[in-house]
Amino acid sequence: MKILKTLLALCMTVLAAQALAQETPDALARRVMNEVIAVVKSDPAIQAGDSRRINELVDAKVLPYFDFRHMTALAMGREWRAATPAQRDALTAEFRSLLVRTYSNALSQYKNQTIDFKPLRMQAADTDVIVRTEVRQPGAKPVSIDYQMDRQADGWKVYDVMVAGVSLVTNYRETFSQEIKAGGVDGLIKSLQAKNAQTGANHK
């Protein structure tokens, strides 16, 4: 009996994992956004701007679907190859907190917007897709927000976000290469740390 139960539980886990792995990227994006918006709308602390609560929400629901290492590499461009493994780790950590804070603060301003998902053009074999959405709010022009995702062993991951057609990741490339020209990769890491310390303090 016990063996049967264990087997059954194992089967269920495998099935559930398969279902998640097979979730199409747009379905995944829709599910995550709906979950996050539901929490934002129902949590008075988040609406009051409680940044700790927002961070918890983003940590738990959103970040597992982002590939920050890939994002950092993309922002660095050709400079990424020149960075040592330790520098890459430090860059990824700092860039990650910069992006996460920007996203969380934007999320805390969420009000009255609606998100439309555009139909996804995707072949079954595709491993790299763009999920296109349009954010509408009353009295303002709709803004397109697109998520570029690739398929990894544990499911689809976002590695680029485009607002109004502009990559919020590669938009850093010019600044990064200026920083690297001035102070090397370590100089860039220091600038990112300083930025994170400064903006983090402003929001406390």
Binding site: N105, A106, Q109, G165, V166, E174, T175, L192
Partner: peptide, 26 residues
């Protein structure tokens, strides 16, 4: 604009690069 404050290491160049790319896109 508050997102710009959060995101940019250097607001001038972030805004410039965003403007140029979004115009290309348009």
């Amino acid at each position: 604009d508050s997102a710009l404050d959060d995101a940019a290491l250097d607001r001038y160049s972030y805004l410039r690069d965003f403007y140029l790319k979004s115009r290309l896109n348009q």
